[in-house]
Design a protein around this nucleic acid. Structure first.
Lengths: 234, 234
DNA sequence: GACGTTTTAGACAATGGCGTCTAATTTTAC
DNA sequence: GTAAAATTAGACGCCATTGTCTAAAACGTC
């Protein structure tokens, strides 16, 4: 009857990370179990076991299973957002050595945003539980693929403006760049595997070569020859 | 104590469809519920209700929940396989009007194999339950994306042999063709929506234009001019 | 060391789903 | 029409899980 409040409320309602080790441990464990078992298949007991925490502690921090689930998704989405922003900032600004610049960018995009743990987690969870939590799905779509496409579209437009690329529809080109970058890795990441650095490099190289053959300014492909001549000579 | 066997066994062990309306009704309902709720979240009672069948009837046909699940996946995979074979047979044989031929092919591929009900079902289920049933995942990968890639690779090679395309790595080109074809539709199909015919047409057109800019024989893009000149003129 | 807070382990009721069983009813085949 | 097969509704035991509660233990701070 002492009407004590939950620790989370006591702490002032902060939901940022880093406030306490237990909380992070719970979030990480829950992400792991939710990702493997789905929402319905995940049990609080298993999450508690993975987090090395008693079940009651979880209920102290999160009112119910659904609260925990939403918190996990928000947490991962925050991390993924920050990472996407960072990767987008590394897009090559000038046209010097465009093929290498775009390839390095594609590697970073795949490695840190799409094939990484958080990226796979979000795609899987959103697809699994998206119908049950439409708001969650919409939020992910806007902040993830949506932001990526619009930002990449603007960056490509800037390159096109300098004459380094010849693009008629920037949005389409942006989506195609992402699609090409993933073409060789999609299957592997879907099943849960993580590509090696070598595979990342090769996939990005294939993607950028094709992208530049389609959109590169005539006469400036990787070898410094017109693309057709290069293809015929090859 | 009468030791009666299940009707399925009595019927001679056939697992093909069409043997009885109830069976099909159960399979369809189970596919629907499994797809929406996942394996753990789906309840036999709900499947029975959707199938307009008593729960006991389901247990007469399938020993347990897992048996039903596997049967559902196999059923859908058989349909999807037949459809993929049919679509692959429609790949343009000669280079006449290559852009239109490839575009029509891409439309059929998306419409009947990737964005359709069965395609979305399989991708979702395999991703959701793939870790629990590795055999299922492997089987899907081989008969679905695997077969598509190798078949498309061979078909592209034939076109390249006639000189209509200039391709150095057929496997990479095949994966890129599929990736480009899906680039504009991925997000929509992921969330559950079905693209309109107009969207399918536009997505395929975008994909094939880029694919031909990258791999088309010089001097024969859609407008009959060298691609570079066309791009500059545009 | 004392006090307030957090965590823990375990018991607990309630819920819901799975798979079985039975008896009644409908469908099918001859 | 009759017999066999299939289907149905409902009850049942069993088990896992959720979320609550309590008393004891660990922790941190002064």
């Amino acid at each position: 009857m002492k009407d004590r409040m939950t620790p989370a409320i006591r702490m002032g309602g902060h939901t940022q990370r880093g406030q306490c080790a237990k909380r992070m441990s719970i979030l990480d464990a829950a992400a792991d179990v939710f990702c493997r078992q789905g929402f319905a298949g995940a049990s609080i007991d298993e999450i508690a076991a993975v987090a090395c925490v008693s079940r009651q502690t979880i209920y102290n921090h999160y009112r119910e299973k659904e609260t925990l689930f939403v918190a996990v998704v928000e947490d991962v989405m925050n991390r993924a957002n920050a990472m996407l922003f960072s990767v987008l900032s590394s897009f090559p600004e000038n046209a010097d050595n465009l093929e290498d610049g775009l390839t390095a960018f594609a590697v970073r995009l795949n490695k840190n945003c799409i094939c990484n743990h958080d990226g796979k987690f979000l795609r899987k969870l959103v697809q699994t539980e998206g119908e049950r939590y439409p708001h969650l799905f919409e939020s992910w779509r806007q902040q993830g693929p949506g932001k990526l496409t619009t930002a990449l579209s603007a960056l490509l437009a800037r390159l096109a403006h300098t004459g380094a690329l010849v693009i008629d529809d920037f949005d389409v080109a942006a989506r195609q760049f992402v699609a090409l970058a993933n073409a060789d890795l999609q299957m592997m990441t879907l099943f849960g595997g993580t590509p090696t650095d070598e595979q990342l490099e090769k996939a990005a190289r294939n993607a950028v070569r094709t992208f530049l053959k389609a959109y590169g300014r005539p006469g400036t492909d990787g070898a410094g020859r017109p693309p057709q001549l290069a293809a015929i000579a090859g």
